[in-house]
Amino acid sequence: MNGAQDMGGMQNFGPVLREAGEPAFHADWERTAFALTLAMGFTGEWTIDMSRRAREALPPADYLASSYYQIWFAGLEALLQERGLVSGAEIASGRTLTPARPVKRVLKGGEVSAALAAGGPAERETGMPARFTVGDRVRTRTMNPTHHTRLPRYARNHAGEIVRVHGAHVFPDTNAHGLGEDPRWLYTVRFSARELWGEEANPRDHVHLDLWEPYLESA
């Protein structure tokens, strides 16, 4: 979706503001929003791609007006309702009104470090051969899907070169919508800055993106 999350190349946001000695969290609710998001992720009710899709579903004006953890929290509220774990009435009232339904897993105290250490690798076995190899010239597709995708607007319809083959990885465009992992080959593609941005870009500079095979065609 061409939403506000797809920021690469936008202008006029102003300088990058840094904070000396920045803490990990700036408010207690940020700690809670972060921890709830991770803990609910462990229930297996949704995937990281679905989380990203839920955050990106915020209307652009709301997305840009929200702080980072406000966006996370809005995504969490949306997913909980979508999965029928918490109702809209419960979110509106702030009170539990209906019984819980069973979930696959609940993250217990004492399990956290093992669960974090295990992580959630995205690489999968596939029977499909890789269409491209290192050194191949490719062109990204022109596409404007209304679904979740990880091909940013600034990198569409541009020529680049495959510089790394990562194996088959879970395909976000389907997985974000509960349509299955559908693993696809993932490549690092190198683009010259001039190819992406025009003649004013420094001729030596490059941008690399990790892109799935369905985003690419032979050039």
Partner: peptide, 28 residues
Amino acid sequence: RVRALESILIEKGYVEQAALDELVETYE
């Protein structure tokens, strides 16, 4: 809203307070 949702999720048994604390402590 965050505090209210935390209570709901704990009450429903989807998350455990001890795990939430450990998650924060890990990254903090």
